[in-house]
Write a protein that binds this DNA or RNA. Structure first.
Length: 579
RNA sequence: GCGCCCGUAGCUCAGUCGGAUAGAGCACCAGAUUCCUAAUCUGGGGGUCACAGGUUCGAAUCCUGUCGGGCGCACCA
């Protein structure tokens, strides 16, 4: 149970009773009423803004209304006292049993603590990674991959039914280029000296094994044939090989998608035609000529009649092209079909995770999603800013040509999937991120992964040590009422915020909040620990007091569970020991 | 030129659908270790929340404008 929503319900009940009395008008909008932890712990345990939010619609002074609400909240058994502060905050001081009750819930629930039902089983589609199947993934993909995966896990924990989707862009010109590159490697595998890879083709060595596999499959039967005879077959083969490689890389990173949607399959199944016909039937598609871009006109710009979607009807700046000059669909056209497909598979909430270079694409895709679903589906696009790869404070310059290109696989092999995952969530997606290969593996306080893992390991360590003094001792069945020191209670209050943190992060689609919360928990725990160094009666293991030792082990177990719950959510394995 | 994102301590960044005295790490200064892992902790200095207006009980947060930085800008994906 989430103590904050629990008291939110109690506050709402009080407001209901005041309305029933006629003290408050009927039908007040309570959506802005919140129950929060006060910023300053000296204000009490819980705080509500109810009186300030409702004063105006109720036609009362905030503090007068606060007094009425506080009076009724005061009759709750667990409420020790209420007071009214500042412009009309109602601060509640609770019986400390409330926090011990939370600890008992944590121990009973294990890492399922923090699970929430706010999603009510609603289906949400999260599309992420969606790297083009033309080569291995690089470090830039890592951030979006972690972000999308953890956001999906977060939504699951909050009670949503989530589909992890990967949209495979296997229909454009780029996959033809890929096929030609693979064909060259095929000739190479048959013994031909192909010399330098011509510019415009993919030069990477990763296509060599594909060439070899092609040589084994086809022998020399494709040599000397015109492109039209081998391209489609070879393209399918090469894309499969690239997707196998990408899937293997993702697997090593602990990421699994539920659905891989092929752009080509959508086109071939006629879904693009169908989607655009729907829009056309609603009068949202027309043949027209766009104005040249203002300010900076491309050199080769010339007026051209195109098939356009009325994106401006849905908040975009200009109408958008759907058909290329060669007659094939634009990427945008098939993307509309893709989003319609997600909607038809049952998701009204769609989330796309994109890189910073796609920022200019957001409006048109939102416009299209609104249009194609007739306003029933909502698309949220999360843009991940760039990752700057550093080494001990110095930027690493990456270049495909110079061979200093860092792939996702290299990164994961070098520092481990857990470290990469955690570091990627130490910033909001809106902020650029420095990823320092040296610092992220340092065992020091300025490495947040280590800092949190260390707290988790300490929890294990102390439980292990305790059994040497008291064989078989655990925190389960401990008398929790022995936990009464202020530092213990303050840690309990923080642990009780875990469900609320999960819900807030899920609502905001902001998985980085989990990382920050875990850092707070670790800091609070490290602080408590060190207090025990100086003040020996605050230690966990007290040789002359087995009951209190058991109670403190319960607290430590609570910390361990919450940290483990958070790390699990982030896809990071909690460690039991640090070496 | 237009759109989106960003601008918070010397540096890198958090900041709860607007809430009380704006926080953390790094760096700097002063301390804590016979004792559960000091790989940690405690304390200190450091702020015009880019700037100017507006909205309201209340603005770092919302709105408008200005300045600065990043990304993008007909048919690529």
């Amino acid at each position: 149970m989430n103590i904050f929503t629990e008291y939110g319900t109690k506050v709402a009940a009080v407001l209901g009773s005041l309305a029933a009395d006629g003290t408050l008008p009927q039908g007040l909008d309570l959506s802005r009423v919140a129950v929060d932890p006060p910023r300053d712990a000296s204000h009490g345990d819980l705080s509500t803004n109810a009186a300030m939010v409702l004063a105006k619609p109720a036609g009362m002074k905030p503090r007068d209304l606060a007094a009425l609400i506080a009076e009724r909240l005061n009759t709750e058994d667990e409420v020790l006292s209420t007071d009214i502060a500042g412009p009309g905050f109602i601060n509640l001081r609770l019986d400390t049993m409330v926090w011990r009750r939370c600890l008992a819930e944590i121990l009973a629930a294990g890492t399922a603590y923090g699970n929430s039902a706010i999603g009510a089983g609603e289906r949400v589609n999260v599309e992420f990674v969606s790297a083009n199947p033309t080569g291995p993934m690089h470090i830039g993909h890592a951030r979006g991959a972690v972000f999308g995966d953890v956001l999906a896990s977060l939504l699951v924990k909050a009670g949503y039914s989530v589909v992890r989707d990967y949209y495979v862009n296997d229909a454009g010109e780029q996959v033809n280029v890929l096929s030609r590159s693979a064909y060259l490697r095929y000739r190479e595998a048959l013994g031909e000296d192909i010399g330098e890879i011509p510019s415009g083709l993919y030069p990477g060595d990763y296509l060599r094994p594909v060439g070899k596999a092609l040589a084994e499959k086809y022998g020399d039967s494709l040599l000397g044939k015109p492109e039209s005879e081998w391209l489609p077959e070879l393209r399918a083969f090469t894309i499969d090989a690239m997707m196998d490689m990408i899937r293997a890389d993702l697997d090593a990173f602990g990421i699994r998608h539920d659905v891989f949607t092929s752009e080509r399959a959508l086109v071939e199944a006629g879904k693009v035609d169908a989607a655009l016909k729907t829009l056309s039937d609603r009068g949202l598609i027309y043949e027209g000529v766009l104005e040249p871009p203002k300010g900076k006109t491309p050199d080769d710009w010339e007026p051209r009649e195109q098939t356009l979607f009325r994106a401006t009807d849905f908040g975009d700046e200009v109408d958008r092209a759907l058909v290329k000059s060669d007659g094939s669909w634009t990427y945008f056209a098939s993307d509309i079909a893709c989003h319609l497909d997600k909607f038809q598979r049952g998701s009204k909430t769609l989330i796309d995770v994109w890189g910073a270079d796609h920022g200019g694409y957001v409006r048109r895709m939102k416009a299209a999603t609104t249009a194609i679903s007739e306003g029933q589906a909502a698309l949220d696009v999360k843009i991940c800013q760039i990752v700057k790869l550093m080494d001990n404070g110095e930027p690493i310059k990456m270049s495909k040509r110079a061979g200093t290109f860092v792939t996702l696989r290299d990164l994961v092999d070098e520092v481990g999937p857990g470290v990469v995952r955690f570091i990627m969530l130490t910033r909001s997606n809106d902020a650029p991120l420095d990823f320092d290969l040296t610092k992220v593996t340092e065992q020091s306080r300025d490495n947040p992964v280590f800092y949190v893992q260390y707290a988790h390991a300490r929890c294990h360590s102390v439980a292990r040590m305790a059994t040497e003094t008291f064989p078989g001792i655990t925190g389960s069945n401990a008398n929790l009422s022995l936990l009464e020191d202020e530092v213990e209670l303050s840690l309990l209050r923080l642990l009780a915020q875990w469900p609320r943190t999960v819900e807030a992060a899920a609502n905001a689609h902001e998985p980085h909040r989990i990382a920050y919360y875990l850092h707070d928990v670790a800091a609070e725990f490290h602080g408590l620990w060190t207090k025990g160094k100086e003040q020996t009666d605050l230690r966990v293991i007290l040789e002359d007091n087995q009951p209190l030792t058991a109670a403190r082990l319960a607290l430590v177990e609570g910390v361990r569970i919450v940290i483990a719950s958070g790390l699990e959510l982030m896809g990071v394995e909690p460690v039991k020991e640090l070496r």
